[in-house]
Amino acid sequence: MAEVKLFGSWYSPISKRVEMALKLKGVEYEFIDEDLRNKSPLLFKYNPIHKKVPVLLHNGKPIAESSVIIEYIDETWEGPSILPKDPYERAMARFSRTIEEKCGVAMWKAFSSPGEEGEKAKEEAAQLLKYLEEEIKGKKFFGGENIGLVDISANFIGYWFGIFQEIAGLELLTKEKYPNLGEWIDGFINHSFVKDYLPPKDKITEVYKASAQHASSDTNQRSNFA
Rank of each mutant, 00 (worst) to 15 (best):
L198K: 10
K122N: 12
I204A: 04
H214Y: 06
A121Q: 00
K122G: 01
E133F: 03
I157D: 03
A126K: 14
K137I: 04
P114I: 03
A210G: 09
W160Q: 02
H191L: 03
L181R: 11
L149F: 15
K203L: 15
S153L: 04
I189S: 02
S217M: 10
D151G: 09
T174Q: 05
N180M: 04
I157N: 06
W184D: 07
K140I: 08
I147F: 09
S192M: 12
K201R: 15
E183L: 05
S153R: 04
G115Q: 04
F161M: 07
A110E: 03
S113C: 13
K137P: 00
M107S: 07
E123T: 10
V194F: 02
V194S: 03
E123S: 13
L149Q: 04
I157W: 09
F164S: 07
V105Q: 14
V207R: 08
A121I: 07
G118T: 12
I136M: 02
Q165A: 12
F142I: 05
F111H: 05
K177G: 00
F142V: 09
S217L: 09
N190E: 13
G138T: 03
Q221L: 14
K120P: 00
Q221H: 07
M107C: 14
F193Q: 06
L170Q: 10
A168L: 02
K140W: 00
I204M: 14
A210N: 13
F161H: 07
E183W: 00
G138V: 04
E123F: 01
G169R: 04
F188A: 01
G169Y: 08
T219P: 00
I163L: 01
E133S: 03
S216G: 05
E117A: 13
I157T: 15
I167K: 06
F193I: 01
K209N: 08
E176C: 02
G118L: 01
K177Y: 05
D218N: 14
S217E: 15
E176G: 09
S153C: 15
F164Y: 13
Q165S: 01
S113I: 02
I163T: 03
A154D: 04
E124F: 08
D151S: 10
D151L: 01
A106M: 02
E166Q: 03
G143L: 00
T174R: 00
P179E: 07
V150W: 11
K120F: 07
L173Q: 10
